[in-house]
Simulated assay, not measured.
Amino acid sequence: MSKKVSLTVNRSRFDIDLDDAFADFLLHQLEKDFKLDGNNDLKVLLQAYVKKNYELFEQDRKIVKLLEQMTVESAEA
């Protein structure tokens, strides 16, 4: 099944058809950064993009740190 998620940016409405499970996840994430029942200007879109990329940056740093710890631990064993 698919589900439609809609977002309005700069007075243009974007409808995206997604798999149900991902649609629920994405909708939850979009609610954190956007007004889903109104218009969002481009500044809001850019801020959300930068915020999500920072979250990915932090996640990547944590993964690298964990991998380094696992490498050290396996070398000690």
Results as ranks from 00 to 15, higher is better:
Val5Lys: 01
Tyr49Ala: 11
Asp33Trp: 08
Leu45Asp: 02
Asn39Leu: 06
Met70Asn: 08
Phe22Leu: 12
Ala77Asn: 09
Gly38Leu: 03
Leu42Val: 03
Ala77Trp: 03
Leu36Met: 14
Leu42Asp: 00
Leu36Ala: 00
Leu46His: 03
Leu36His: 05
Lys35Ala: 14
Glu58Tyr: 01
Val44Lys: 14
Asp20Arg: 11
Lys32Asn: 13
His28Asp: 15
Leu27Arg: 08
Ala75Ile: 06
Asp19Pro: 08
Ala23Pro: 07
Ala21Gln: 13
His28Arg: 14
Asp15Met: 04
Asp19His: 04
Ala23Ser: 14
Lys32Thr: 13
Asp24Lys: 10
Leu56Asp: 08
Asp60Cys: 01
Val44Tyr: 03
Gln59Ala: 13
Asn10Lys: 06
Leu45Lys: 06
Leu27Val: 04
Lys65His: 11
Leu36Ser: 04
Gln69Pro: 03
Glu31Cys: 10
Gln69Arg: 12
Val72Thr: 08
Leu26Asn: 04
Ala21Gly: 05
Phe14Pro: 01
Lys3Glu: 06
Val50Phe: 11
Glu73Arg: 12
Asp19Asn: 13
Leu67Lys: 08
Lys51Leu: 10
Val9Gln: 05
Val64Arg: 09
Glu55Lys: 06
Val50Asn: 02
Asp15Pro: 05
Glu31Leu: 11
Ala75Gln: 13
Thr8Ser: 09
Met1Gln: 09
Leu7Ser: 04
Lys43Thr: 09
Lys32Ser: 10
Tyr49Lys: 01
Gln47Ile: 09
Gly38Lys: 02
Ser74Phe: 09
Asp17Phe: 09
Arg13Leu: 15
Leu45Glu: 00
Val64Ile: 15
Glu68His: 01
Asp41Trp: 01
Met1Ala: 14
Asn53Phe: 12
Thr8Asp: 04
Gln69Asn: 12
Glu73His: 02
Asp24Tyr: 00
Arg11His: 15
Ser12His: 11
Lys3Phe: 07
Val64Tyr: 03
Thr71Ser: 11
Lys51Trp: 02
Leu30His: 06
Lys32His: 13
Leu26Pro: 01
Asn39His: 10
Asp24Val: 14
Arg61Leu: 13
Ser6Arg: 11
Val50Met: 07
Asp41Met: 07
Asn10Gly: 15
Asp33Arg: 09
Glu73Ile: 06
Lys52Gln: 15
Asp41Phe: 03
Phe57Asn: 08
Glu58Cys: 06
Asp60Ile: 07
Leu56Glu: 06
Ser6Asn: 08
